[in-house]
């Protein structure tokens, strides 16, 4: 499980780097093309919005793995380490159940989007839409891995998180 999650993490990092770098270059190039060459890149804004979608779901998945997404912990923090672990396990179980539902819905949604093309570039919309199920699938694996690790730690005698 750890290996799979780590392997996905490296893929996500590479995708993330490519996305943010190309987004910056595309938008900056669009300004240059408009002023210097007087020829706007008509697909620049749509393409960058699609890159933003991929960046969000891939980055969101990484953020869940690293636990860097904002959460309210001041109540949970009042409990002992064991108490906290119980809260964490309950949270992960709730999240995974709903995540599974969301995954089902989003795959269904992507497969039913065959009629749609983007408004400007006219590429099929499943290309940007796929970011949702792919990102959520990766996130699901990371979260499951975090949960498994929580149980493992307990067996090892409960180290504080």
């Amino acid at each position: 499980m750890n290996t799979l999650s780590g392997w996905i993490e490296s893929i996500e990092k590479v995708i993330a780097m490519i996305l943010i770098a190309s987004m910056t270059i595309v938008i900056a190039a669009a300004v240059l093309f408009r002023y210097l060459l007087n020829a706007p890149i008509f697909w620049a804004s749509e393409a960058s919005i699609f890159m933003m979608a991929w960046l969000t779901f891939i980055g969101g998945s990484l953020g869940l793995k690293y636990k860097s997404q904002a959460s309210v912990t001041f109540l949970v923090d009042r409990f002992s380490d064991n108490g906290k672990r119980v809260f964490e396990i309950v949270s992960y179980v709730i999240i995974l159940i709903f995540m599974a539902l969301l995954l089902y819905l989003s795959y269904q949604w992507v497969f039913s989007s065959s009629h749609q093309k983007s408004t400007s570039m006219r590429i099929p919309m499943w290309i940007p839409y796929l970011s949702v199920p792919v990102g959520l699938t990766f996130a699901f694996i990371h979260l499951l891995n975090n949960l498994v690790n929580l149980f493992k730690k307990k067996q090892q005698g409960g180290e504080p998180l």
């Binding site: 706007p40 008509f42 804004s45 749509e46 408004t119 400007s120």
Partner: peptide
């Protein structure tokens, strides 16, 4: 408006459509 038919019309006119 970002819709190909409208944008194409302005391209035919030699303008640069921006959305």
């Amino acid at each position: 408006t970002p819709s190909p038919a409208l944008q194409d019309w302005y391209r035919y006119l030699g303008a640069n459509p921006e959305s």
